[in-house]
Design a protein around this nucleic acid. Structure first.
Lengths: 261, 261
DNA sequence: ATATCTTGGTGAACAGCGTTCATATGACGA
DNA sequence: TCGTCATATGAACGCTGTTCACCAAGATAT
């Protein structure tokens, strides 16, 4: 590797001498960036890094582009998150309100909402941080209100019910995600790092509850089975049903417990 | 102290020559740091900077101490946030369950919970990010379950009701805070920077709803008054009542609508 | 009285973050 | 062929959470 002694043969281009940058792959006929492509990339980063790993730099890397390029299409990270939030509910349609089927319609709404929140990691956290009153989301709010009013709910109840049910969905999925994360983290620390095994976590939790002093925590012990195990789906439906029954109680008088179950 | 050559009079201590640091105020008999003091400082930072402005460095500054000193008492920022979360509910007591008064007891619980969440800025965001199954919080869960079961609710309902009601409280306060923040931000951009005027924001929101095309948003327009104006307190109670009525519907048979309102 | 250990703090550093700005480059119309 | 325009670059700024080698002073032991 002789290069030192006999008169310095080839002066390496000093860093401040910029002739032509080696054009890393400057613009290889890439289809140009766009809002859509940025949001899309953000979703894939979100899905395999989680919200805490979602940085502008990583989104840029995903697109094979520098950070600053993103800011031509998105005005800030918050802006990007808001775009993701509204995009998540793209094409979310609410049915024409049918007074006789309002409960089913709300169940469908809740299930569809939950499914969408579950379709991307940590999405509930993002959703929770936003108020659904952007122009794109207003039709959904309107659709919900339409169902409530068609069902015959008094106005002051209808006005609150939308928030209540949306918050429930968000909150439930958020908690689902937190359990999954926690399971994954503890799993990763111990042995396997790619198996967020849900049941193992549930077992551990039930064991923990069972280990509590019986005289101080009788109810927690008694209900531990129901609280942690049991599919999320049925737990979700149970909570939802409580809300629906509460709403039904404000209806003039349809034989109570009628549509129940 | 002549030690140098007779020419150079007083060699100023070179920066890398560290004899004794001027002891800025090394340890002015300060009462030593403690977990408690750190958490306390974190709360005051939280209250006047918000969660986004809560950094370890600012907490340290609040205590007149360097960042690294904090890590002797707190293992990470997440740890600190968790401490704040559990500390918020210190001394939170649930009553001995009284089967006849379960609704009142739950109302009291909800009000107390909301009040505590409101007692520090952005606290609902912190609360939402945690699962209440830490050792310190388990007694509260137990107390809630006790009320549900004493009231006579079936187990699978009782197991879900705690989550439902807690999520409602958290979610409601969270949204309250978001409106306040948004109002404050827009206010700050325009003119006054110390008046988060709530009513002005509500007015603006109602105006916005009223400006929507009547044929597309009849319900939103009709209910806008109820949704945005009206005190938060009564809106909170309305949502809470829906849940309580839903729970009541699972009771064997106490003349429905009995304790209602 | 001197030496040692412990305690509780310092300050510099690291890697990463969101955001901005002057600059360079490729494609297109004149 | 030249200029223009849009687009992407890369360096920089100030901030973040976290770690680590070091240091001053008090308590303890010799």
């Amino acid at each position: 590797m002789s290069n030192a002694a006999p008169g310095t043969p080839a002066p390496p281009p000093s860093p401040w001498d910029r002739r032509r940058r080696p054009r890393a792959q400057a613009a290889p006929a890439r289809l140009p960036l766009s809002r859509e492509r940025v949001v899309e990339a953000a979703f894939t980063v979100l899905d395999d890094q989680g919200l805490d790993g979602l940085s502008m730099r990583r989104v840029a890397a995903e697109l094979g582009v520098t950070v600053s390029a993103l800011y031509a299409h998105v005005s800030s990270k918050d802006d990007l998150l808001e775009l993701m939030y509204t995009r998540l509910f793209d094409g979310f349609e609410l049915p024409e309100p049918d007074p006789k089927r309002w409960r089913e319609q709300l169940r469908d709404f809740a299930h569809a909402g939950r499914r969408r929140l579950l379709s991307h990691r940590d999405m509930a956290r993002i959703s929770m941080a936003h108020v659904p009153f952007t122009a794109e989301l207003l039709p959904h709010v309107e659709g919900l209100l339409a169902i409530f009013r068609a069902a015959g709910l008094p106005d002051h109840i209808a006005a609150e019910a939308g928030d209540l049910i949306s918050t429930y969905i968000d909150g439930f999925v958020l908690e689902e995600g937190m359990w999954q994360d926690r399971a994954a983290r503890e799993d990763g620390e111990e042995a396997s790092l790619a198996r967020p095994d849900w049941h193992e976590m549930a077992d551990r939790m039930r064991d923990y509850f069972a280990s509590l002093p019986a005289e101080d925590f009788p109810n927690l012990r008694a209900l531990s089975g129901l609280m942690v195990s049991g599919s999320s789906d049925t737990r979700f439906d149970t909570g939802l049903e409580i809300i629906l029954r509460g709403l039904a109680s404000y209806l003039p008088d349809t034989a109570p417990g009628d549509d129940a179950r």
